[in-house]
Design a protein around this nucleic acid. Sequence first.
DNA 1: TGCACGATGAAC
DNA 2: TTCATCGTGCAC
Length: 183
Amino acid sequence: MNKLPRPFYDRDTVVVAQELLGKWLVHDVAGVPHIGKIVEVEAYLGAHDLAAHSAKGLTERTKTMFGPPGHAYVYLIYGVHHCMNVVTEREGHAAAVLLRAVAPVKNLAGRTQGPGLLCRAMNIDRRLNGHDLLSGNFFIAEPEAAEIFSIVKRPRIGVDYAKHWAKRRLRFYIKGDQFVSRF
DNA sequence: TGCACGATGAAC
DNA sequence: TTCATCGTGCAC
């Protein structure tokens, strides 16, 4: 499979977020490759973005976001669900792209439309926090067949506390895709 | 050492 | 609209 290289992630987060749409998220568990096509994402631009966890500064929780690009930032939310992000831009910039939904491609059971459901279906939990996405068992790859689609831009979900940052259209999804979490 | 609070999902 | 459930961050 054609794995995305480090330079792909070391670019403007809004660009990376949109280009992640259509790509394949691959997690190999005990020899079984779980594969989902990314159909919905959100961009978190860095420590200046009040909706981003990194706006709190460098802490135990956010140190993955402040690390080098191309690594997974996985955290537990509401004590119940896991959320999976991809770190972008240069080390120290603390930006990331939240993966909100995937469409089943291979070996996925259950629903995948939402950040928590996506992680459950893909067997992703915080043990994978900080994991290098250029590794052999957990990575993002080019899809086998490229497709043409339109990208819808909307405000991010669940970040009303972020003042004017909550209004920016940093949520992106594939237009008309049935696996988008909500329209 | 205690406590408020989530980048959610499911039930009521 | 409410609630489950717990790690993190910061106040005391």
